[in-house]
Design a protein around this nucleic acid. Sequence first.
DNA 1: CTAAAGCCTCCCCTGTAGGGGAGAGTCAAG
DNA 2: CTTGACTCTCCCCTACAGGGGAGGCTTTAG
Lengths: 139, 139
Amino acid sequence: MVVVTAMRIGELAERAGTSVKTIRYYDRIGVLRPAERSESGYRLYGEDALDRYRFVRAAQAVGLRLGEIREIIALRDQGETPCGFVVDLIGRRAAELDTRIVELAALRDELRSLDRRARRLDPRRCHPRLVCHVIDGGA
Amino acid sequence: MVVVTAMRIGELAERAGTSVKTIRYYDRIGVLRPAERSESGYRLYGEDALDRYRFVRAAQAVGLRLGEIREIIALRDQGETPCGFVVDLIGRRAAELDTRIVELAALRDELRSLDRRARRLDPRRCHPRLVCHVIDGGA
DNA sequence: CTAAAGCCTCCCCTGTAGGGGAGAGTCAAG
DNA sequence: CTTGACTCTCCCCTACAGGGGAGGCTTTAG
């Protein structure tokens, strides 16, 4: 109730360098709730909203999803330190990334190999009953 | 019209090892159309449908999307050889993958670095006005 | 006082590859 | 003839992070 400097959503969005839609969305999913509402229902934010917003962006930048960020913030708002949770999360995410990178590298290698093979094949011979022997010729 | 061995959708799905829904979907988006329809509207497929299906799966397996696969098939059905198109496609896809892999590796490295930093930080000191100094402390 | 700008909620849209289910017609066996 | 399995079309749903716009208040500047 004692909001010293109350920003409305437009000002927050502009100072944060984002869109009003995004701020509203963050409210809806619970990662950035307004300090209060005006009598007419307008969202009112304090200065800390900017820090919160930057945290959300920083967390997104390291690959966390908004649902996970909401959990971190919920822990913090319950007075707990989310550090343990965060460490688990980024450890797991790093491991998932490793797996994903290996998969993508394998896929890329297969594409390169298809590419080399395709260049050796004679296009004029490319006319069996199959669609394209570059792709399913190797099966 | 002269369909020697006419399969209905259930049989094709079973022999292909997939679902009826998938075959119907492939028809709708144009990657696997039935040879004809029965009087009552049932989809009827020839033996070649199995080859087509396998081609679609092989193409998906190397990372092509159904929209792209449809283009390849359309070329083939227009009597052209899709080889050139396919070679371009897989070349571009491989390049995209390279970029993506580099991005993901950078992200993973950043996560690992956050992880190491988090383990050095004292959780009891984790209580500023920010949510989590593991994440936004480095900004 | 009035017009413009800002804000509200609500609803649909994006892309990918289908999945789930409703309601209705069809086909084979008993 | 009937029952059960099969098929048809049509419509909504999924994840993700919002974007676009309608229709209706509120606030602010002139």
